[in-house]
């Protein structure tokens, strides 16, 4: 079973895949594990020889369906874990050329792995397909990504695992919140670009769904950072008490020495 689906290049300007951008950014590429060849609106991503685990017969075809960034992906490999990983890597090699958010703090993780939703509960491969409406499927992917962020943060952080160092607590929460906010940003952009293709009620429902998911992430973030701040305040309180004790001892010692000198002066 080959891998095939419609997907979206995240962008805020709605011109991610305009001809001028494709020509400007996809010319003469020779870096990384993949070779990206661009002709008209067809893009072919092939593996270079001797890349780790990537056979040279690998090929990901990307057909640009509109200049807003909607494209059709078609990979010549069967859906199995290693091939899916390579197809995702090839997509990201292409995406790096056109997408400014890839690899940044505002990375849109919802579009990082087009073929990552591929495993069904029956144990058979169940590639993410645009089974129904592409626009609804894509917006669901954004919502699902934010849901995953809150779930992972809650279940791994809150209940099961210990952070290596205390100062990392806030890092984990901040990075997860930034990731969720980035996905929300590109979700908003997607609706802004393609909103007219959605039935009106569906758009409102999707916006609401996303709002609820964002609130979930914010609850987790607030809880984690509050714990961190409470820990900090507790440490500061302990330090203050110790400092006061030391001062009191020093003052008492000083007073004792002073009294002793006075006594010696009165009764030499």
């Amino acid at each position: 079973m080959s891998m095939e689906l419609d997907f979206w290049i995240p962008n805020l300007s709605a011109e991610a895949a305009s001809i001028s951008r494709l020509e400007k950014h996809l010319e003469n590429d020779s870096n990384g594990n993949f070779r990206i060849v661009h002709k008209d609106k067809k893009i072919v991503v092939t593996a270079k020889k001797d890349s780790n685990g990537v056979q040279s017969d690998f090929c990901l075809n990307i057909e640009i369906l509109d200049y807003h960034g909607r494209c059709h992906l078609n990979c010549n490999r069967n859906a199995e874990p290693a091939s899916i990983y390579i197809a995702n890597e090839a997509w990201n090699a292409f995406r790096r050329k056109l997408d400014g958010c890839e690899g940044t703090i505002y990375d849109c993780s919802a579009v990082r792995e087009p073929f990552n939703v591929f495993h069904s509960s029956t144990g058979e491969f169940n590639l993410h397909k645009n089974a129904g409406n592409f626009y609804i499927d894509m917006s669901n992917r954004f919502i699902q990504s934010v849901e995953r962020i809150s779930d992972t943060m809650n279940h791994i952080w809150s209940n099961g695992m210990e952070i290596k160092r205390r100062r990392y607590n806030i890092d984990v929460a901040t990075r997860s919140l930034a990731n969720a906010k980035a996905n929300k940003l590109y979700f908003d952009s997607f609706l802004n670009i393609y909103g007219e293709r959605f039935p009106a009620k569906t758009t409102k429902a999707k916006i609401k769904e996303m709002e609820f998911r964002m609130k979930k992430v914010e609850i987790a973030y607030d809880a984690i950072t509050t714990i961190r701040n409470t820990d900090y305040e507790s440490s500061m309180h302990t330090i203050t008490v110790i400092a006061l004790l030391i001062s009191a001892i020093a003052l008492a010692a000083d007073a004792f020495i002073g009294l002793n000198e006075l006594f010696q002066w009165i009764h030499p």
Partner: peptide
Amino acid sequence: LEALDTLSNT
């Protein structure tokens, strides 16, 4: 793979 997808996505 299902749990790995979630953990790699985040």
